[in-house]
Simulated assay, not measured.
Amino acid sequence: MATQKKTTDVDYSMQEKILALYELQKIDSKIDEINKVKGELPLEVQDLEDEMAGMTTRIEHVNAEIEELNSLIKQRKREVDQAKIMIGNYKEQQNNVRNNREFDAITKEIEYQELEIELAEKRLKEYAAGIKAKKLQLEEAENLSKERAADLAAKKSELESIEVETAPQVAEYEAQRERVLSKIDERLLAAYERIRRNVRNGLAVVTVKRDACGGCFNRIPPQRQVDIRQGKKIIVCEYCGRILVADPEAAQE
């Protein structure tokens, strides 16, 4: 908003705005060069942070599954103990039966509880095997997490070292950028940023050198070169869409 006020307070000529765009491009190119030193480090750090977050979630999920299996083991053991108590009670009742029918009925109850114990013990073995498998998964995930954490720490350290080293330069370029931005209106700036995103090396503003576009090197017609030197309007390369400006060094010569 502050920049917007500056551009409306001062009535800069189109030629001044075009030169400001060229200066802005030079500053942004210097910042781009600094960012190139970082290479893929910012993306690598982000990817590792995302991977670490995913592994943390995975570890928490596996731990929750182990906890659930342990809870089921306790429940099944209580069921086995209860079934054994009931079998003991039924056997005592068999000693006091009055006829074969009662004896057979109690025998069936005992058999049923024995089947329940057999099923519970089968489940206990399954749960124990499940816990063993989950613990292996957990160990692998934790080991991988430690490796990734070490990688992340190393890459973060490297990136922070570069950022600390280049911070004074970046701060100076950012200050220069703010001063230049005061001469560029919002419409031109939006066009500049759009072109920068869509062209190679982020070069949105290029000079005409040897009668050719400094971006795509296609020949510029003589009359169009005259219009570019006059600086009365924004002229873009008909081949690559970059903003064309007269070469200040050639103009001085």
Rank of each mutant, 00 (worst) to 15 (best):
L48V: 10
L181M: 15
K125I: 13
I110F: 00
L159P: 04
T207H: 08
P168N: 02
M86F: 08
Y173H: 14
E186K: 11
S71K: 13
R210Q: 01
I220P: 03
T57S: 12
E121G: 06
G88E: 11
R229Q: 05
A154S: 14
E163Y: 02
E102W: 11
N198V: 08
E140W: 10
A83Y: 15
D151V: 09
I31P: 15
Q15A: 09
E163D: 07
K17D: 10
D104Y: 08
Y127F: 15
P168H: 03
L24H: 06
R194G: 12
Y12N: 11
S29Q: 04
E114A: 08
G39N: 09
F103G: 02
R194C: 12
K77P: 05
A251T: 04
C216I: 00
E158A: 12
M14C: 00
K108A: 06
R148F: 07
K5F: 13
E249T: 08
P222M: 10
L69G: 05
M52K: 12
D11F: 08
Q252K: 11
A83H: 13
N35E: 13
Y112N: 15
A251I: 14
R242A: 15
I228V: 11
A167C: 14
E60C: 03
Y112P: 14
I85G: 01
K91G: 03
R242H: 15
E249V: 10
Q4L: 04
A53K: 07
A150G: 14
K26G: 01
A64L: 09
M86V: 02
V206S: 04
T3W: 08
E118N: 07
Q15M: 06
A141K: 10
Q25K: 01
D28G: 02
L48E: 01
I31Q: 06
E116S: 10
I66C: 09
L72G: 04
I106W: 05
A246E: 02
V208W: 01
E238T: 04
V236F: 00
R229G: 03
E186R: 14
A154N: 11
F217K: 06
I243R: 10
K125W: 09
V208Y: 00
N201L: 15
K232H: 14
A154H: 08
R229Y: 00
E253V: 12
L19F: 09
Q252R: 14
R242D: 13
A83C: 04
C240L: 02
Q15Y: 07
I235N: 07
A133F: 05
N70F: 03
V164F: 13
F217S: 01
